[in-house]
Structure formats: structure tokens, C-alpha cells
Write a protein that binds this DNA or RNA. Structure first.
Ligand SMILES: [Mn+2]
Ligand SMILES: [Mn+2]
Ligand SMILES: [Zn+2]
Ligand SMILES: [Zn+2]
Lengths: 152, 152
DNA sequence: TGCTTTATTGAGACTCAGTATCAATATAAA
DNA sequence: TTTATATTGATACTGAGTCTCAATAAAGCA
């Protein structure tokens, strides 16, 4: 609760710096995101809010997610399926993702050797590295027996 | 020309194996892709065909791209902008991409250390690696002076 | 507290890449 | 040729995400 409130304060400051206002909808959306460890799409968040009797429009969720992304509260990502997903970024250092093609499970990882190679490779091309996406697609441990039966 | 024709033959074989037919539209689309080094979206291919007085419907381009992807002729990729791009895969070994946020230029790279780390990391999680996406976003050499003026 | 300004909201229209439908047409095999 | 059926193009449709705008609510101030 105290942690949450400090995040809401931080959000309020971020909003004020841009001349934006702190609304009940924005608080509800941020709190929902802070309470989740998942990589969710807009509608997941919307339905989660509704299951807590909070009614917000889809447009407002999209609008708030954009503000939260710019403010560094959430990370927007896509795993190639044409939809964007959002994850609570505050408690997490940078990481990349392994994504199970069967069940959608996401395993997070970081590897300093890879991070270092990225810097090295971009320097070779005089390319100024800003950010990166690194996604490993495959079959997770739990899904391998089932996948084998289907011939994957 | 001879190289092209052998690719068309290969395409024909692939189609026949599936009970599909070789049509003038499919040949035109494959030839257009074989003649390009770029990472193009559907409409780029469509307009390229039209500039050569070849009229094909957008639906047919999409349908053919799907067949070509399954057959290993093209690689379908997205760089996070919500549209798919396709590149001629035949002459190329596996590689990943650096993408310029200013001009869209794409630089291809491969790094055996990174490839090896990916295998290592997935093994640690008993994750069966199938494919991966690794994209480095930033500012290319040519765009850095312009970007500096804009404060990037 | 009440007033004023203006940011925000929700409903629904809209966009746009990609997919599905279906009658007309072209392919390939006999 | 003839025939069976795969393919095409036109166009309707889908679905994630954006835009519009009148009604509402937040924030600063008297
Ligand atoms: Mn994550
Ligand atoms: Mn490439
Ligand atoms: Zn799985
Ligand atoms: Zn550039």
C-alpha cells in the first residue's frame, strides 16, 4: 500500500510536469498494472479492471498506457502476433524474453555477454544503439511432452 | 536468368507437392522478390509489380507471400511498426537486423557468440529453441549528424 | 466553498493491414 | 478438347488501435 501510494505520487508528479491531471481512471489503471507480473494486452487490463467492478473505456486504457509508457512505468512490447503487450516496468531491470509457441508462457532472461556483443557490433557499424528486442521462440519445458505427441 | 529459372522450377515443385498450381501471378511475385535485396511490405511489392506493368491484386500478393514463406523462399518479419515485411531468403544465411529509427535503413548482422549464448540460455531453462528475433534499434551512421541537430 | 478554465472521458466513428467470400477464370491432367 | 478444381480479383469484413466531440471532472483561484 505504501509502495503503491509512492508510485501514485510519482505518477501524479509526472502528469503535473506535463500539465496533465490525475484521474480515478488513471489511478485504477496504474494500480492494476502494478499488481500484475504479466505481459498483458489492453483488453486483459480492461477485463481485469471490470472484474474489480471498475468501468473504464478501452480508449482511456490505451491513452493511459501511452502516458505510462512515456513516463517509464510500463514497457510496451510485441511478440509478433500483431498486438501490443504491456508489463510493469518499475521493479524490473532490463531483460529479454523466451516465448513458448504452445502456451504463450514468457520466461525472462538477461545475458551480459549478449548485451556486450550488441554494443560491440553496433560500434563496428558506427550505429548508435538506442534499444533492442531479443525474443527466443520455442517450446517450454512443460509443453514439450504435448508438443512431441503432435510432432513438433 | 538461369538462376531465376531454377528458382521458378523449385517453386513449381513446391507447389505441385501441395496440389497447388503455378500461375503467372505467382511467377511475377516470386521474380519480383528474387530481384530485390530489400525488406519490403506487401504494398512495396505490389507497386513494384505495377511499375513493371504487372497487375496483381493485393489479396493475391498476400496469398502468394504466405506460400513463399512456408516454402522457405521468403522470410516474414516485423520491426514493431505493426506491418509485416518480407525479404528474399534464398541467397542468405540466417542473420539479424539493426534498424535505423530515423531513415529505416536496415543493416544485417550475425554473431556466433550471440547465437551460442542463445542456445546455452535456452538449455538452462529446458526450453526448446525454434527461432529467434534480435533487432537492434538506433541511429545509423548517415543519420547521426541530422539526429544530433534534433537533439536525439 | 464556489467559479472558471481546460484536460479528460466514453461512445462510437474511423483507419488500415490483413483475411474471407464467391463468382468468374485459368491451370493441369486425362 | 474436356473436365475438375485451384486461383484470381473485387469487395466485404475483421480487429487492434486511433480520432472526434459533447458531456464531465480536475485543479487553481477568488
Ligand atoms: Mn518481461
Ligand atoms: Mn534481412
Ligand atoms: Zn509452454
Ligand atoms: Zn538512418
Amino acid at each position: 500500500m505504501t509502495i503503491k501510494n509512492s508510485n501514485i505520487e510519482h505518477f501524479k508528479d509526472t502528469l503535473q510536469a506535463e500539465g496533465l491531471r490525475l484521474t480515478s481512471q488513471r489511478i485504477a489503471i496504474l494500480e492494476d498494472i502494478l499488481a500484475s507480473e504479466e505481459h498483458r494486452e489492453c483488453d486483459d487490463i480492461l477485463f481485469s479492471l471490470r472484474s474489480n467492478q471498475i468501468s473504464v473505456s478501452r480508449a482511456t486504457v490505451y491513452r493511459t498506457l501511452e502516458i505510462l509508457e512515456k513516463g517509464g512505468f510500463v514497457r510496451k512490447m510485441n511478440i509478433g502476433d500483431g498486438r501490443f503487450r504491456y508489463e510493469n516496468k518499475l521493479p524490473k531491470p532490463h531483460h529479454d524474453h523466451m516465448i513458448c509457441l504452445e502456451c504463450g508462457r514468457i520466461i525472462e532472461f538477461v545475458d551480459q555477454e549478449i548485451e556486450a556483443r550488441q554494443v560491440h557490433l553496433t560500434k563496428q557499424h558506427n550505429f548508435k544503439l538506442v534499444r533492442h528486442i531479443h525474443q527466443l521462440f520455442g517450446i517450454c519445458e512443460d509443453c514439450q511432452p504435448a508438443a512431441a505427441n503432435k510432432g513438433v
